[in-house]
Simulated assay, not measured.
Amino acid sequence: MPEIPFTKGHGTGNDFVIVPDPDGVLDLSAAQVAALCDRHFGIGADGLLRVVRSAAGGFGSDAEWFMDYRNADGSIAEMCGNGVRVFARYLADTGLASLDSPLAVGTRAGTKTVTRSDDGFRVDLGTWRTDAADPLVRARGLDVARPGMNIDLGNPHIVVALASDAELDGLDLSVIPHIDPQPEGGANVEFVVPEDPLITAGVGRIRMRVFERGVGETLSCGTGTVAAALAVRSWAGGAPHEWRVEVPGGVLGVSMFEMGGQERVALSGPATLVYSGTVTLA
C-alpha cells in the first residue's frame, strides 16, 4: 500500500486534505477519498484537493495548476470557493506558484483568478445564473417548507430565507434537507438570516448555515456565501454590492462588480494550512 504526502488546510473551518500530485500519477478512487476524509478513521475533512498540473491531468485548462476537488464522500464537485483559496495558499507556500501577481487556478467550473487581499485571499468566481424556479425546501427544525432561490456559480445552490436567528440556530442539519423538485445532481442548501440593520456603512450583513451535498453541514461554504449574498440582494431590491457573511467558522467577504458588460462576483477570506504528514492509502 503506497504512502503519500498530504497537508491539512481550511478556510473559515471548511477543511480539506490537500494531496500534491504535480505529474498526475495518482488515481484516487471514491472509496480512498472518503477514507482520507473520514473524521474517525482517516485524516478528516469536508473534501479533498488534488494539486495537479492541468496538462498532466488531462483537464484541458489554460491554467498551469488544476484543483481536482472531491467531496468528503468521494464524489466529484465542480467548484469550492474556500477550497480555491486554500489551494492557492498551498501553491504559494510550497513554492509551486507565486501570488506576487494574479494566479490562475483551473477548476471544473472554469479558470478562477486568485489574488492576495487584506483579509487573506480573493478569488474572482466569474459570472452567475439564476432562474424563475422556486423549489421548496423542507428541513428538520422548520415548521413548514420554505421557497428557495436557485443560484448557479458553476456549482448549484438553493438559498432559503429564514425569519429569525432563532430559526437559523434551531435547524437540525444532521438530516439532509428535502428539495422539491429534487435537482439532478443535488445542490448545496444555504439558510440565511439578514442582520438588523441589513446594511451598515454601505455593507450588507447576513448570517448563514449550509448543508453541502456529499458532505453534510459544514462550518463554511465559499460559493454558498456568495449565493446567499446574491439572493438577499435580490430580495432586498437595490441593496449594496459589498457583503459580509457570518458563517459558523468565521466571516467571509463577497463583492459584485461589472466587467465586460457582465456582473461578476468575488469571494475573499482567510486560508490556513494546519499541518503536513504522510498517510498510507488503503
Rank of each mutant, 00 (worst) to 15 (best):
G204Y: 12
S220Q: 10
S98G: 04
S220K: 09
H157E: 03
V17K: 12
L99V: 05
V137F: 02
H40W: 05
G185R: 03
G238M: 13
S234P: 04
P248K: 00
R207N: 13
L153A: 08
G250V: 00
G269F: 00
R50E: 07
A166L: 07
M256G: 08
G148E: 01
F257S: 14
T12C: 15
V279D: 08
S54C: 04
T113C: 01
G148C: 08
A271C: 08
F59N: 09
R264L: 02
E217G: 04
A145N: 13
R116W: 06
P135F: 09
V33N: 02
V51Q: 00
V245S: 03
N150P: 02
V265N: 10
K112R: 14
A30W: 05
P22R: 07
K8R: 15
R116G: 09
V51I: 06
D180N: 11
A161P: 13
G216K: 05
D131T: 12
L142G: 02
T223N: 09
D172T: 10
Y275I: 06
G42C: 09
A35K: 13
D38M: 08
I158L: 13
H157M: 05
P102L: 09
D165N: 13
R53T: 05
V123W: 09
R129A: 15
A163F: 02
A92E: 15
A228C: 11
H157G: 05
E64F: 01
F41R: 15
A45N: 02
T107S: 13
G249Y: 00
V137Y: 06
L136P: 00
L103G: 04
C221T: 11
C221E: 04
A35P: 00
P147G: 08
A239I: 01
D93E: 15
D119H: 09
R146Y: 02
V226D: 07
R264S: 01
P240G: 03
P181I: 14
D119K: 06
P102I: 12
M1Y: 11
V210R: 04
V144P: 01
S220F: 06
G185Y: 05
T94E: 14
L267P: 00
G237A: 15
G120W: 06
V192Q: 12
I151S: 05
A97N: 07
G83V: 05
D68A: 10
V210E: 03
S101N: 14
R108E: 08
R53Y: 00
R233E: 07
E184R: 14
R50A: 02
A63F: 01
T218V: 01
R207E: 12
T111M: 10
V254P: 00
D27K: 15
P135Q: 11
I76V: 15
R213A: 08
A31T: 15
G120I: 05
P194W: 06
G57Y: 04
T223M: 10
